[in-house]
Simulated scan of single mutants.
Amino acid sequence: MTGWPGDELDVIGNAEEVGISSRRRDGSLRPYVTIWAVRVGDDLYIRSAYGPDNPWFVRARASGSGRIRAAGLERDVEFAEADADVHGSIDAAYHAKYDRHGPKIVGTVVGPQVVDTTLRLELARAA
């Protein structure tokens, strides 16, 4: 796996919303779902706002790969587990970026209840 280029980290990390799509078994992409994403250091993270049974999250975890799009940029990604020690920083990034939307909505993507619904986006390896 290669790291994200800095300009792409900036584009995705600064986008208000991103589209996320997982791959079907035949390799085709499912329809995009609009979600929030945050940047922590040189990594990008997404969380399921409505728990581990949210359909997009179930599909992303099962497939392990997909695509992200933000502000005209599209990249193939792999969905990986987040390291245990980064969740506090992810919470802080969500607060910094989205607190203006209010505690009720931001509360769906921060705290211990969303640790298990956190995915790190890795730039997919070139085929």
Score class of each variant (00 low, 15 high):
Asp53Glu: 15
Gln113Cys: 02
Gly64Ile: 00
Arg30Asp: 09
Ala96His: 11
Gly41Leu: 08
Ser65His: 04
His87Ile: 05
Leu123Lys: 05
Ser21Met: 07
Trp56Gln: 09
Arg75Ser: 06
Arg47Phe: 01
Pro55Met: 04
Phe79Lys: 00
Gly107Pro: 04
Tyr32Asn: 12
Glu78Trp: 09
Glu81Leu: 06
Glu8Asp: 13
Asp42Lys: 01
Tyr32Pro: 14
Asp83Ala: 15
Glu17Gln: 14
Ile12Cys: 01
Asp7Val: 11
Tyr94Met: 05
Gly64Thr: 01
Pro55Ser: 07
Ile68Arg: 00
Ser65Met: 02
Ala62Leu: 04
Ile20Phe: 08
Asp99His: 11
Leu73Phe: 14
Glu78Asn: 12
His101Met: 14
Arg69Asn: 15
His95Tyr: 12
Glu122Pro: 02
Asp85Ser: 14
Gly41Gln: 10
Gly13Val: 03
Gly66Gln: 02
Ala92Ser: 10
Glu16Val: 12
Gly107Trp: 06
Trp56Cys: 07
Asp116Trp: 02
Gly3Arg: 03
Ser22Ala: 14
Thr2Gly: 02
Glu78His: 11
Ala80Cys: 11
Asp42Leu: 04
Ala62Lys: 08
Arg67Glu: 15
Met1Cys: 04
Arg67Ala: 14
Arg24Pro: 12
Gln113Thr: 09
Ile12Gly: 00
Asp7Phe: 12
Leu44His: 01
Thr117Gly: 08
Arg67Pro: 06
Ala92Cys: 04
Glu8Thr: 01
Arg120Asp: 06
